[in-house]
Simulated scan of single mutants.
Amino acid sequence: MEIERKWMVNGWPEGDLPLLFEQNMRQGYITTAPTVRIREEAEVNGKTEYILCFKSSGTLARKEIEIAISREKFEELEDLIGLPLIPKVRRTYQLSDGHHLEVNHVDEGLPSEFWYAEVEFLTEDEARSWNPDEASLSDYLNNEVTNQPGQSMGAYWLVTRKAKPM
């Protein structure tokens, strides 16, 4: 189960948040209803993983199944998709309460480029009660879009890649 809240942000967070790692990613969608996605995750100065992901519908909470696949299988699926994958840079920061703040810069340099941040939780109650003020992030995380329609990466894919739902 994936339980997360999402905010639109402007740039990387300022301050002294400890950076845990940075990844360069590329992702694309085989279908968006239900979500079936492939993603390449290349950790800076680390390993590269290739993932096939299935997600149920939902906003705050949804089922997520991730399966590691080979680079060759990833490339086959990328060819099957036949559209440019979405590049993004993700930086993961450690918060003082133990949570991780994941900040993503999507489609850098394109007119549609944007930034968003997510925090994942163990339960829906924990997610609902978490307050950005307690992590000194109220100024940065001030535009929450968790429950707003059209704020998923799958929706962005459909708009920017002119993909038709399958």
Rank of each mutant, 00 (worst) to 15 (best):
E72C: 07
E43S: 07
S56M: 09
L85D: 01
T48G: 05
K73F: 07
E64V: 05
Y50N: 01
S57H: 14
E64A: 06
L85Q: 00
F74D: 00
L52I: 05
L85I: 03
T48L: 06
P84R: 08
S56I: 06
I65R: 14
I51R: 09
L77S: 00
L52G: 02
R71C: 08
K73M: 11
T48H: 08
I69G: 03
R71Q: 15
K47T: 14
G82W: 10
Y50G: 02
P84A: 06
E49Q: 14
E49M: 08
S57V: 09
L83C: 07
T48A: 08
L60N: 02
E76V: 04
I67N: 10
R71Y: 07
I65T: 14
V44R: 15
V44K: 15
E43W: 04
P84Y: 06
F74H: 08
E75L: 12
F54W: 13
A61C: 12
F54E: 03
F54V: 07
L80P: 00
A61V: 09
E76W: 04
K47Y: 10
T48R: 07
V44F: 05
S70V: 03
S56G: 15
G82D: 11
L83T: 03
K47F: 09
A61R: 13
E40M: 10
V44E: 09
A61K: 12
E72A: 12
I86T: 03
I65Y: 15
L80V: 12
S70Y: 04
L52Y: 05
E75A: 06
R39G: 00
G82K: 11
R39N: 02
L83M: 11
E72T: 11
T59P: 01
E49H: 13
E76Y: 05
L83E: 06
I81P: 02
I81S: 05
E43H: 07
K63G: 12
S57G: 14
F54Y: 15
P84H: 07
G58E: 13
A42F: 02
R39T: 01
K47D: 12
S56P: 03
C53I: 13
D79L: 10
P84I: 03
L85C: 03
A68E: 11
A61S: 14
K73W: 03
F74P: 00
D79F: 06
G46W: 06
S57T: 13
C53R: 09
E64C: 12
G82M: 10
I65P: 02
K47N: 13
C53S: 15
K73A: 10
E64K: 05
A68F: 04
T59L: 10
E40W: 00
E78P: 00
E41Y: 00
K73I: 09
A42G: 04
E43K: 14
E40Q: 15
E66Q: 13
A42Y: 01
I86V: 10
I81T: 06
R62H: 13
T48I: 11
S56L: 09
L85E: 00
L77C: 03
Y50L: 04
V44Q: 11
E72G: 07
L80C: 11
I51H: 05
I81F: 06
C53V: 13
T59D: 13
E72F: 10
N45V: 04
E75C: 05
E64P: 01
K63Y: 12
N45H: 15
D79H: 13
R71D: 08
L52R: 03
I67E: 06
A68L: 11
